[in-house]
C-alpha cells in the first residue's frame, strides 16, 4: 500500500507540474495572500488611513494588546484575525485544484479506466490519491505559512520589541484547522467528481466551499464575530467528523462502474 501511494502521488505531482492551469493559481494566490498583501499592509500599518480604519473596528484590544500603539494594534489585529481568514482560501483552493486534477482530471483524460486495469484495489487507489493530494495540498499550505511567517517576523522586528507571532492560535490554525479543511476540499471534490464531466466544471463547484470562507472574512472585518482559538479547535473537530462521514460514503461510491462509464 505504501509503495502504491508513493507511485501514484509521484505521478500526480509530475502531471500537476506539467499543467500550468493547475500550478499557476497555487503559486499566484499564496504569493498574493502571504507575501504581497502582508508586505503592503505592514508598510502601511502606521499610516493615517490605516489608523482611521482601525478606529472604526468594533474590536476590544485586551491584555498586552491594549497598550499597543495604533500601528502595533493594526498589525496585531491583522495577524490574528484578518490574515487567518484570508489564509483559509489557500488550503481550500489548493486541495480542490489538486483533487480536481487527481480525480476529475483522470476521468476527463480517460486514464481512470487504465488505473482500474492494474492490480491495485479500489481502496488502495482511493487512499493513494487522497494521501498524495493531501501531501501536496498541505505542502503548499505550509510553504505559504512559512512565507507569511517570514514577512510577519520581519514586520515584528520593525514594529515590536518582543515576539507576538506565532501565537498558539496560529499553531492551532496550521496544524489542526488547515488539515481538516484540506481533507474537506479533497473529499468534497471526490464526491462531486462523479458528477462533474470536466476539470473546469469541477472547479466551479469549489465556489460552494470558498463562499463560507468569504463570509468569515467579511464577518471578521465587519466585526460581526472573531475566530478565537476555541472556535478554531471546535470547528476543526466538527470538520474532521464531517470529513470522516463523507469519506465513508465517498469510498462506497468509488467504483469503476460509477466513475468511468
Amino acid at each position: 500500500m505504501k509503495d502504491t501511494v508513493k507511485i501514484i502521488a509521484r505521478k500526480d505531482l509530475k502531471v500537476i507540474l506539467q499543467e500550468k492551469i493547475i500550478w499557476l493559481p497555487m503559486l499566484i494566490v499564496p504569493l498574493l495572500l502571504c507575501l504581497l498583501l502582508p508586505v503592503i499592509f505592514f508598510i502601511a500599518a502606521g499610516s493615517a488611513e490605516s489608523i482611521k480604519e482601525l478606529e472604526s473596528l468594533p474590536f476590544e484590544f485586551e491584555g498586552e494588546a491594549a497598550n499597543f500603539n495604533p500601528a502595533q494594534k493594526s498589525i496585531y489585529f491583522a495577524i490574528n484575525y484578518m490574515f487567518p481568514g484570508l489564509f483559509l482560501i489557500i488550503p481550500i483552493l489548493t486541495s480542490s485544484i489538486i483533487a480536481g486534477s487527481s480525480f476529475v482530471g483522470e476521468r476527463e483524460g480517460k486514464t481512470l479506466e487504465s488505473l482500474f486495469y492494474t492490480p491495485v484495489t479500489i481502496r488502495e487507489l482511493f487512499t493513494a490519491k487522497l494521501t498524495g493530494s493531501f501531501v501536496i495540498a498541505y505542502s503548499v499550505t505550509f510553504v505559504s505559512f512559512t512565507l507569511f511567517s517570514i514577512v510577519v517576523f520581519t514586520a515584528q522586528f520593525f514594529y515590536f520589541d518582543y515576539i507576538i507571532y506565532p501565537s498558539f492560535k496560529w499553531l492551532v490554525f496550521i496544524f489542526w484547522l488547515c488539515p481538516a479543511l484540506i481533507l474537506l476540499g479533497l473529499i468534497f471534490m471526490v464526491r462531486t467528481s462523479a458528477k462533474a464531466k470536466t476539470f473546469q466544471e469541477a472547479q466551479q463547484r469549489v465556489l460552494l466551499l470558498i463562499l463560507p470562507v468569504i463570509l468569515i472574512i467579511i464577518g471578521q472585518v465587519a466585526g460581526l464575530f472573531y475566530l478565537s482559538t476555541l472556535v478554531m479547535l471546535i470547528t476543526g473537530l466538527l470538520i474532521f467528523i464531517i470529513d470522516y462521514l463523507i469519506m465513508r460514503a465517498a469510498i462506497k461510491n468509488f467504483k469503476p462502474e460509477n466513475l468511468v462509464f
Partner: peptide, 12 residues
C-alpha cells in the same frame, strides 16, 4: 488490456 477508452497521461 488494450481498449480504445483506456488512455495514457499525455503530458508524460
Amino acid at each position: 488490456v488494450m481498449t480504445e477508452t483506456a488512455n495514457f497521461y499525455e503530458k508524460l
